[in-house]
Write a protein that binds this DNA or RNA. Structure first.
Lengths: 305, 305
DNA sequence: TTTTGGTATCCGTTTTTCTGATACGATTTA
DNA sequence: TAAATCGTATCAGAAAAACGGATACCAAAA
């Protein structure tokens, strides 16, 4: 059994095609075909169903894939150890964040990280969960933080980062009936609601909540710009629903009013996604830890009442 | 990075010699030398200090070894999955047990295992910890159960199986001053004590206990046969000290009297040792689990008073 | 000083791997 | 229905890598 064979197999598995995988790993289609079929013959198993439109893994192929990526991850760790990467904290970290994070948690994390590891290059991309997930799979991002509702790719592994509460955000001068530090949304109906576009994972979450709790929505405005949303809400009777950590700057009530949704609460889980086959580099791990710490302290402000 | 290079490296590491490793993995000394030096050059590290009497790992070599065995273990699991070994429960299991286990726990475990997996061949070897550890390193045993006091080889990993109480064993008709279900050994001094030979790990344990608690021993008899010891103790004024699970058949008091050592108690931890670089086969794991269960129920008889 | 046990290096041989071309099947397109 | 397209399997020669014996070298022990 060779390590490269595992890489080839994993590539074919993830691409669903010998040809595409060959291009990805800089090899030829015939080479991959031979390697995979050699593995199959040697162990008398069939790993892929071949068809004229690509390949799909068999049950055995699926099971083997899960083991194969563990081997590759271990091999990466071993090689990193050799390179001394596990000690020296230098390099380039690419991180993808859902928009939620870029307002509240990111700034603090960035400042801390830059102070402690000034020679590390850091690249942050903002995007929707599905986009970011794709980038992680492709290896262009070290990891990404997305809402947990997102169904993740098999090539990815997710680690929970914590649960947040969704909050109603409206103009500061608006009177809303608060109950025990929260708001019962139905009492505000009919709502004029600003929502993210349908590509956003939170959109579905919120619409389900509305439907399930029979909250009447008189009009919906689709805004995919966070600045625009916040400005509009601050100076009109439009309201929106945002994760708690996005509302932190507004908790003083000077520009906007914030109230947790209650009866029932609406929660959102954040998770960090990364590839199975390559463990986080030492630097990426450090930044992930800092991000987690900042998130933790941000979440403390919103107790699970 | 190739899997075989890792195997070569690990072999050299464990043998402390290129020549010995070459023989072990059925390769030539020159081949191993080239592979290792290639790894070293490629990553600009030195893995071994070469000398005319063999090699010793550098700090980097040590660190890399710990990662390398993880890769090999993962690769074994992956290959086992391909072979379908992880499902089918057939094969041959070799287990090493310290003498303690062969009296009480083994029988029950054997019966259960043979009933549930009749087509599996099982080989049990009895031996001292150091012997068994060597056999495990060499790959002749799937795993071994030994007392935890034994300092284990770096190629091995140990898992705790539970703590046992040492007991005094003497003739059934002897009168001994019992206190709260135990015996204070000093009150019986001077003792005529049957002990295992100096090669036995428990020998040191017991002698330390005697010295530390100032128990006077009038004479020592070295017996390395369990049958001999038990028979002698049953029909003379010689006494011995045995782990609790060995005393289970004597708890009825018909042939021998058993009393836990108290003030202070003397305990012994059992552990399972296996190689780092190869995970237990499915069958071996099952037998290990059964052994653990039997040990647990045996240990319940001796509460940690 | 010689012997012994160990490692590094060299080079011809053998084995494996890689690649490009080709064949074949299925699905889509004209 | 025929052709074109996309995908995989297979083959044979070329390229690369691994292998293994011989040799050189070193250091400690005899």
């Amino acid at each position: 059994m060779k390590l490269q064979q595992l890489q080839y197999f994993v590539a074919v598995y993830e691409q669903g095609s010998f040809s595409a995988a060959a291009e990805k790993v800089n090899a030829t289609q015939s080479g991959l075909s031979m390697h995979v079929s050699q593995m199959e013959k040697r162990h008398n198993v069939v790993l892929f169903h071949r068809s004229s439109s690509g390949v799909s893994p068999t049950e055995e192929g699926r099971a083997f894939y899960l083991e194969a990526v563990k081997v590759l991850a271990a091999a990466c760790r071993a090689e990193d150890r050799l390179k001394g990467l596990s000690k020296s904290v230098v390099g380039h970290v690419h991180v993808g964040l859902m928009p939620t994070f870029t307002r509240a948690v990111l700034t603090e994390a960035l400042l801390r990280f830059d102070r402690e590891y000034p020679e590390v290059r850091l690249s942050i991309s903002e995007g929707y969960a599905s986009t970011l997930a794709g980038e992680v799979v492709e290896g262009r991002l070290d990891f990404a933080v997305v809402p947990a509702s997102f169904a993740i790719n098999e090539a990815l592994v997710s680690k929970s980062m914590g649960q947040d509460r969704e909050c109603l955000v409206c103009a500061a001068d608006r009177d809303i009936p608060m109950t025990k530090n929260g708001v019962h949304l139905k009492e505000l109906a009919p709502l004029r609601l600003v929502l993210p576009g349908t590509g956003n994972a939170r959109r579905t979450l919120i619409e389900n909540y509305m439907a399930l709790n029979e909250v009447e929505v008189s009009s919906i405005l689709e805004l995919d710009t966070m600045h625009g949303t916040l400005n509009l809400v601050a100076s009109s009777d439009w309201v929106t629903i945002l994760p708690g950590i996005m509302c932190l700057p507004d908790l003083d009530g000077s520009r906007r009013k914030v109230a947790m949704l209650v009866d029932p609460p609406l929660t959102v889980d954040y998770m960090r996604i990364e590839t199975r086959k390559r463990p986080l580099s030492a630097v990426a791990q450090i930044f992930a830890d800092i991000l987690q710490e900042e998130l933790n302290s941000a979440l403390e402000v919103f107790p699970y009442a």
